[in-house]
Amino acid sequence: MNKRTINFFLVLSFLVSTTGIRAQDDDLLKLLGEEKPKKERIKYAFKSPRVINSHSMEFLNPGTMDFRILHRFGQVDQGYKNLFGLDQASMRMGFDFGVMQNLMFGFGRSTYKKELDAFLKYAPIRQSTGPWSSPVTVAFVSGITMDGLPWADPSRKNFFTSKLGYYFEAIIGRKFSETFSLQVAPTMVHRNLVATVATPNNVYALGVGGRLKLSQRVAFTWDYSHVFIGMPDSGYYHPLSVGFDIETGGHVFQLHFSNSTGMNERAFITETTGRWGKAEVRFGFNLSRVFQIKKNKKHKE
């Protein structure tokens, strides 16, 4: 190999290297380098902050209010005389507020036992991707209920605290894919006053709720609570609700069948009297309408 050819190759390699740089020009964005992966919260595991009856791992957006109207009709086994239960209705009206992306509170009133309830829900950990991410959302709910019925026996000495009940719940949930989300929720319900000496004040249950998206705007949901400790011997059952979430613009309709009438944790975990096997289920719907009460200013500026 003479000097001339060596030089030729040298020059050729220069040219190749420089044209190599030019070839990269094809994708100009590559010049800026790869974006560092950022921690990103996984959103929209459920369409609503409730699975059906239970709290879900999802939160309201900050600055929004969710006006919820919940209906539970009579038992389907009443037949056509009562239009399969539609002649009777029990309802709960509620207002939930999103304070931060991981903090919300709400209150409501049910016709069942004229009961008032309020709750606070907070998530220290949200499911996310990227560095320092968590595979699950962990949320805690603490609630209080107040029975609004007149005293069963006004002649005895009654205490205001007897009307109260409390519930504490931890929710561990994960959005496994765009279509499938699942959560478990160990729950404890405490009632200050119970009907008989034999009835325990504390009830422990494990909730399992999930969502399977069927299309862009329709999802199949289920919500089950298994009562492990504190279930009375007879007449009470584990609450199971199955239904569909239908989203229509600003509303989310949750249409479902459930064996419970109660629409707060105390009521549906400890006082579900229907049996699925005997068709003692009720048709029901939750109507959720989200209002933006504080507008997001981030996009102006």
Partner: peptide
């Protein structure tokens, strides 16, 4: 996902639907 909206629900619908 970087698109910001005045209304959170609109942002959700934009991304989700």
């Amino acid at each position: 996902k970087g698109f910001l909206f005045e209304r959170a629900l609109m942002e959700e619908h934009f991304n989700e639907n």
